[in-house]
Simulated assay, not measured.
Amino acid sequence: MPADGFGTVDTPHDNALTLSNRAGGNGRVIVVGNEKGGAGKSTVAMHVAVGLMRMKQRVGIIDLDVRQRTLTRYLENRLRWIKSTGSKLPMPEIIRVDASNERDLDKAETEETERLMHAVERLQAVCDYVVIDAPGSDTFLSRLAHTMADTLVTPMNDSFVDFDLLGDVNPQTLEVIRPSFYSEMVWNCRKKKAQASRKPIDWIVMRNRVSPLEARNKQKVGEALANLSKRIGFRLAPGLSERVIYRELFPAGLTLLDLTERGSNFAFTMSHVAARQELRDLIIVLQLPELAGAELTF
């Protein structure tokens, strides 16, 4: 990709989009973020993006994890798979945004603001949705992306270790004592968004890597999340269960929605059918206004 931080992944099939040959409207910005690594943000971002593309939506992607670039590598693996198998898998537009090398903080933030806004504007011009994968840390680019979100999806592992990212609770009563640092950051981003555009941020917290067992801890996490959602204003979404297949699909750049495509050597099982339904449920709960009444085609 070009050194200036911007570039597209070219796709080898007839349905490929390019930033120069399509005109579009104001694409909805979906940010997948929290400030804790290992919650499955890139997996969620990838599956949401592919799900939307399977519904004939034009999707652009921005990977803001400037250190690990997990989503970028996921897409590179996908492109390699397409070229090696000849499969016509849907591929999103992607623009890379790098952190500034400026040592002056004000100059660095100005440069990063220009880079991210330019990237979002370019993708919104040709895409129905722009999916931004935020890093698992507190950075200026991450906070800026949260402020630009129309829909914010926060995956969290189903444990009180991850819950602490959102709020502090009484261990006996599960009552919320106070919101935590990430919730406060999102609250500030919501205020900035409302002041700048008079538009709300629809915040969805999804319990990711959920165990199929009805453990007591699982029930307590659910109760605490329900209490916290009423206090700080997010909606709860059904998450994706813990499945080995998600880790196995990464090297091939595939998602659960691609397993029946030509060249896939993964056996399609009833477990994968159930996983697809989890993804359908997530898309439904997102309540994307542009898809109101649309049939889920995956």
Rank of each mutant, 00 (worst) to 15 (best):
A252M: 14
F6I: 00
A252P: 00
G7I: 07
T151W: 10
V29A: 08
V31H: 04
D158M: 12
K199T: 10
F160M: 00
V153L: 15
F181K: 10
S264E: 04
A224L: 10
A292D: 13
K191D: 07
V221G: 08
S87D: 06
N208P: 12
W187P: 00
D133E: 02
I177H: 04
L152A: 12
N157S: 10
T8K: 03
D138F: 08
N157Q: 14
T269Q: 01
L52Y: 03
G86W: 15
Y129T: 04
R143A: 04
E93G: 03
T255P: 07
R96G: 01
P92Q: 04
H13M: 06
S20A: 14
S142F: 01
G38V: 07
T110R: 13
L254I: 07
R262C: 02
D158H: 13
R67G: 05
A145T: 01
S84H: 06
K88M: 13
A108P: 09
D104T: 05
D202S: 14
A99M: 14
T8G: 06
N26G: 02
F181A: 15
A275W: 01
R103D: 08
A145P: 05
N21M: 04
E248G: 02
A226M: 11
Y129G: 03
A99I: 11
S211T: 15
Q287P: 03
G233Q: 14
F163N: 09
V32H: 07
R28P: 01
V273I: 12
L282T: 11
G27A: 10
G5Y: 12
R178K: 12
N170E: 13
G24S: 07
M206P: 09
A196I: 05
Q277V: 15
L141C: 06
G136W: 08
S211G: 03
V161T: 10
G27I: 00
Q219L: 07
P90M: 09
R115I: 12
E214A: 15
I30W: 02
A267R: 07
D258Y: 13
T173L: 08
Y74K: 11
R209S: 07
N157D: 07
R78M: 05
E76S: 06
L286R: 02
T269S: 14
L256H: 10
K192I: 10
G33E: 14
L105G: 02
P12K: 13
E114G: 10
P238R: 13
H47C: 04
L71A: 12
S137C: 04
Y182R: 01
M206V: 05
G25Q: 09
R216L: 14
E35D: 12
P238W: 03
F181Y: 09
T72R: 13
R276V: 14
G239L: 01
K83Q: 15
I283R: 04
E242D: 15
T255Q: 06
L79P: 03
A294C: 03
Q219C: 00
E175I: 06
N208A: 07
D281E: 12
S159L: 11
S211K: 13
L256S: 08
R80W: 00
N77A: 15
G25L: 05
L64Y: 00
M148K: 12
E242T: 10
K193C: 09
T139H: 10
L256R: 07
F163T: 15
D281A: 15
S42Q: 04
